[in-house]
């Protein structure tokens, strides 16, 4: 009996991953989880604002000396930035390519329209675009201080207060944090499925964890502008 024999080489692991919809989705999952991990740490760090200017500014300074004397000044920060940039680029490029493919795969729409999927699921693409735009503003506002009203280098506490003393600063921030919550709500559970961690037994736990992460991130981040607006932090 003649069996079909595989001839020729298989493409490399990287090629296989990048060329497949399943592989590209796993790139999105891993980069998304890296960003999610960062967001949790970022949110926890933000809460230091409730303990006053000295503690918050001291924390910001510590971030720059992290890993010293092994690491040079700000190196740890730059390592994090490089990893995050790689994650953002990987996530966005995969999302763009997969979305284009998805749209092409349904060239004719149904005449009978019906609302499909949950709100969080339907808003993944637009939510992602909103978040990308927010990140640009956020960096210009509080990292480079280009658009910050106060722009006092080395004094993030005062700069944060300046941002959240403007109506647009609060609006942009709160809308973006709502987008983060929604994105994480579908994204975390989805990443678990993509990486093969999901199964019927674990499904409820994963959904609960996704909702909990989304809620904790939203509440934690939004507590800062709310505290500034209500005068709790001033």
């Amino acid at each position: 009996m003649a069996l079909a024999t595989r001839t020729g080489r298989r493409p490399s692991t990287t090629r296989t991953l990048w060329d497949s919809t399943v592989g590209k989705k796993s790139v999105m999952a891993v980069s998304g989880l890296i960003m999610l991990g960062y967001l949790v740490v970022h949110m926890l760090g933000n809460l230091k604002i409730f303990f006053g200017a000295d503690e918050f500014n001291g924390y910001a300074h510590w971030l720059r000396t992290l890993g010293s004397p092994f690491l040079h000044h700000e190196w740890a920060l730059w390592i994090v930035r490089v990893v995050l940039l790689a994650a953002v680029v990987g996530h966005a490029v995969s999302a763009y390519q997969l979305s284009r493919r998805d749209i092409k795969a349904r060239p004719v729409k149904y005449a009978h329209k019906r609302r499909r999927a949950s709100y969080a699921t339907r808003t993944m693409r637009w939510g992602g675009i909103i978040l990308a735009l927010f990140i640009v503003w956020h960096l210009l506002d509080l990292t480079t201080l280009t658009v910050n009203e106060r722009a006092w280098a080395g004094h993030p506490y005062q700069n944060v207060l300046a941002t959240f003393s403007t109506w647009y600063g609060n609006t942009i921030y709160i809308v973006a944090m709502a987008a983060v919550g929604l994105h994480v709500r579908h994204g975390f559970w989805s990443a678990a499925q993509t990486l093969g961690a999901g199964n019927a037994r674990r499904d409820r736990a994963l959904k609960f964890l996704a909702n909990a992460l989304a809620l904790v991130l939203f509440t934690g981040f939004v507590s800062v502008p709310v505290a500034v607006m209500t005068g709790v932090v001033s």
Binding site: S20, T21, V22, R101, D102, T121
Partner: peptide, 13 residues
């Protein structure tokens, strides 16, 4: 993938 199906976004539909 070669057949031109879209990717999975886990909508569950």
């Amino acid at each position: 993938d070669d057949e031109g199906f879209g990717g999975c976004t886990l909508t569950g539909e």
